[in-house]
Nucleic acid binder design. Sequence first.
DNA 1: AAGAAAGTCAACCGCCCACGT
DNA 2: AACGTGGGCGGTTGACTTTCT
Length: 316
Amino acid sequence: MDVKDRDCNNSANISEEEEQMDLRRGPWTVEEDFALINYISTHGDGRWNSLARCAGLKRTGKSCRLRWLNYLRPDVRRGNITLEEQLLILELHSRWGNRWSKIAQYLPGRTDNEIKNYWRTRVQKHAKQLKCDVNSKQFKDTMRYIWMPRLVERIQAAAATATAAAATGGDSSTTTSNTYQLNNSINMTPTGHVGFPPATVGGAQVNTIATPENSSTAASSDSFGNQVSPVSDLTDQYYNNPVPVNNIQNQDYFQVNQADFSESLISPCGYFNQGLDFQAMEQNNQSQWMESGDMSDNLWNAEDIWFLQQQFRNNM
DNA sequence: AAGAAAGTCAACCGCCCACGT
DNA sequence: AACGTGGGCGGTTGACTTTCT
C-alpha cells in the first residue's frame, strides 16, 4: 500500500473529542510496540500523524516515528559500540561535527540518537577529564594524533588475535565478528557504495572509509557535479600514508606530514606543553581510569595513559 | 547495606526545511 | 507569496541502572 494513499476511514471525521484526547507520553508499553509494528508491517511507515491515529496509538506522530526508527526497526543494531565504530564516529565527527544523522548513515544499524549519546557520554566525558573543551582544537588533535591511532592499533591487535585463533582452529567467532564490523560498518556507504580497496596501517589492513566524497571515483565533485572540497583531515593522511603506529610518538612524523596542510597543526607533544593539564589529569583521574574494569569501552586505557605520560615527561 | 553520585539511553522538545495547496 | 503540514535534526531531559563511598 502506498503510504501516500493512507487514509483512515474516519480521518476526515475525527471528532474534536478525539482530536483533543490526551496523548500518552513517556516509555512505550509492549502493547504499543506491537500495535506500531503490526501497523507498519501491513501499511508501511510514513505519514506519521495519521499512522498514529490509524494504529490506534495515543501518541504523536513524532513519537511513533522516533520509536520505530530508534528502537523497533528490524535492522536496528544494539549493544556496545565496537572499536571500529568508535574509530568511524571519531573520523566522521571530525569532518562533519554534530551531524549525527549523517554520521549514522555510515554505521548501519546505528541510530543518530545512539551515536549522539555515545558522543555525549563517552567522548565528552574524556574531554572533561582532559580539562579541555570537546570542540577545542586541542582535543580534536589529541583525538586525531593519539586516540584514533590507538584505536587502529587495538583493532589490528584484535584482528591479529582472532586470525591466530582461527589458524589454530580455535574459536573463530571473534574473527567473524571483527570481519563483519570492518566490512559492514567502515566500508559501507549509505548508498551501498563499496569503499576503496583496503589501505594498510601499520602493516595491517584497514578499510578506507568510503564517503560520498571519496567513493565517487576520487573526483573532486560530488554526484551532483558540485565541487567538493578535499577533506583535509589528518586521518586521511593516516589512512593513505600508512605509518607504523609506534612512529606516532615521533614528532618528525607529524611535522613532515603537517607540511601538506595549509593550516599548520600543533603536534600533540606541543599540547603537552601548551594546554592539557596532564599532571592534574594524572592526579585526578589516573586511579579512576586505571582501575576501570572494562577497558574495551574506554577511550583511554592504561596504555594510553602511560603513553600520554611519557610524552609529557619527554617534553618537560 | 544503604544512600549518593555518576553513567546511560529512550524519549521529548523546539527549530527548521521541504513540499503541497 | 503565504500558509499548513509532515518530517528530520540536534539539543536536552529525566528515569533507570550502575558504581562508588
